[in-house]
Structure formats: structure tokens, C-alpha cells
């Protein structure tokens, strides 16, 4: 998992004035923030605040009506999701989006697809280069499996796995792509404390050891405040606050959004 070559202080992603509408619904309005290379950036906000929409904009699944996204110095308005993947953005989903008919190993191997170049004729014959390529990537997939401690379920179809492990396999699939930036949509949702602690450890290890930039959405405030370097707060599609966990925690606007305002 090669780390990004850029220096840590540089912004790997800049979101400028992004607005997104679905018909009459304003999902995001004029949101701007940046993500520094190598940091853990959290996006928080109440339900329906536009957090997932924001991730979908970043990886090209939604196309904002206004604004621009600059990733690694390349600005784009419209882009297909597989192009975002080729640029080095990987993600996981709020509702697990694994390939249910495949084993854990195969799911993780799909994450390697952009690195595999041999054409289908060589693969059909399974000769020389195609075979070597398959082995090289198997080796990398095994490193991801070791890292996530899921060796025992390598050959198990993912549909048979419990929820917590499915979340872990999904992270593995994203890591297998060796992304520069990892988008995690509620990685701890529905997990018990122990599973959450494991997941936090994996996220911090990925960030610390491989220098992968992490952008995550999470509802567990304890987790967010503990592991993130900076936090973006969205509410009703607007940027409410942006800063370190401590700054955000003390921000009266954020407290109002979460706890409601006392009107007197």
C-alpha cells in the first residue's frame, strides 16, 4: 500500500462551492472544504444532512450542479465513478455493498482489478503472464487479509458472514485498490464496542502506516472525536462548522443542530 507522494500539508482534495439538487430537493448547497493529504477527516451531521451525498459527489456517483472537486490537483465537474477509482479513490458503503455470490478472497481480489492488465485471451489459457499476474495480486490480497485478521474466512462466501465481518471485508476490498484516499460511509454502524475498537484500530493503522487519507462519515461521536484530525459538520446540506474536534465540539451552532435550540 504505497502512501501518497505529496507532503502532508498539501490538500489532496478540495471541494469548492458544491451544490447538488434532486429535483426540488437541495441536498447540498455551496459546501466548501478541503482534505489534507494524510489526515483523517470526519464528516458529521444529523440524518439527512447530506453526508452520504457529499461522499457520492466526491467519488463521482452524483454530479453536482455547481461547484468543483479538485483531487490531486485535477479539477473535474463530471466524472464516471470508475474514473474516480482509477484516480485513487476507494470507498465503503453505509449499507454493505459486497458481491454476495463471491468469497471473501474474491471480493478482495476485485479491489485489485485496476492493477490487472492481462487480456481475457491470456486469462482463458491461464498461461505465463496471466498466471503470474494472478499470483502477484493474490499475494497482495493476502497481505490485506492478514492486516484485517480475516484469514479464517478467506474462502467463505460473504453472504454467510456476520455483519461485522462483512464490514471488514468491505474495508479490505477498498484497501486492496491501494487508494490514496479512502471514503468510509459509517464504518461503525451497527457494531458492538469491541468491533468498533477493531475498526478504529484498522482505520488508524491504514492512516498511520500507509499514509492513506481517510474521509469518514460516522454517527458515533466518541469515535469521531477520538480518531479524526479535523471535522466537517453539515446540516440541511449546508456547511455548519469546520475545524478540529475540540473546536467543533464547542461550536454553539453544532450544539444547536444536535441538541436543538432553547428559545426563550
Amino acid at each position: 500500500m504505497a502512501g501518497p507522494e505529496t507532503s502532508p500539508a498539501e490538500a489532496i482534495l478540495e471541494v469548492e462551492n458544491v451544490s447538488l439538487r434532486f429535483g426540488g430537493v437541495q441536498a447540498l448547497s455551496e459546501v466548501s472544504f478541503d482534505v489534507q493529504s494524510g489526515e483523517v477527516r470526519a464528516i458529521i451531521g444529523p440524518n439527512g444532512a447530506g453526508k452520504s451525498s457529499m461522499l457520492n459527489v466526491i467519488n463521482g456517483f452524483y454530479h453536482p450542479q455547481e461547484g468543483s472537486i479538485t483531487f490531486k490537483g485535477v479539477t473535474r465537474r463530471r466524472m464516471r465513478t470508475h474514473e474516480a477509482a482509477a484516480q485513487g479513490i476507494a470507498r465503503t458503503f453505509q449499507n454493505i455493498a459486497l458481491f454476495r455470490g463471491m468469497t471473501t478472497l474474491d471480493n478482495i481480489m476485485t479491489g485489485r482489478n485496476l492493477k490487472m492488465k492481462r487480456n481475457f485471451l491470456l486469462q482463458a489459457l491461464y498461461l505465463g503472464p496471466a498466471r503470474r499476474e494472478e499470483m502477484e495480486h493474490r499475494e497482495f490480497a493476502e497481505r490485506v487479509i492478514d492486516f484485517l485478521e480475516i484469514q479464517a474466512i478467506r474462502k467463505t462466501p460473504v453472504s454467510r458472514l456476520p455483519y461485522g465481518l462483512q464490514k471488514r471485508v468491505e474495508l479490505g476490498r477498498a484497501l486492496a485498490a491501494e487508494p490514496d484516499m479512502l471514503l468510509l460511509d459509517e464504518p461503525m454502524a451497527g457494531m458492538n464496542t469491541e468491533e468498533k475498537e477493531d475498526m478504529c484500530r484498522f482505520i488508524l493503522d491504514v492512516n498511520g502506516e500507509f499514509g492513506t487519507t481517510v474521509v469518514l462519515i460516522e454517527h458515533d461521536m466518541g469515535v469521531v472525536m477520538d480518531i479524526s484530525d479535523r471535522v466537517v459538520v453539515l446540516d440541511y446540506g449546508r456547511l455548519l462548522a469546520d475545524g478540529t474536534p475540540d473546536e467543533v465540539r464547542r461550536n454553539p451552532l453544532v450544539i444547536d443542530a444536535y441538541l436543538g435550540t432553547v428559545r426563550d
Binding site: A97, M102, N113
Partner: peptide
């Protein structure tokens, strides 16, 4: 794997490339 990925979840398949 690319075929099965498209079969099982085409959106996720596109998102991983």
C-alpha cells in the same frame, strides 16, 4: 470476477473501477 461483481452489485462494481 468482473462479471460476478456486475451481477451482484453493479454500482459497487463501477465504484471499485
Amino acid at each position: 470476477r468482473s462479471w460476478m461483481a456486475i451481477r451482484d452489485m453493479d454500482i459497487a462494481a463501477e465504484i471499485i473501477g
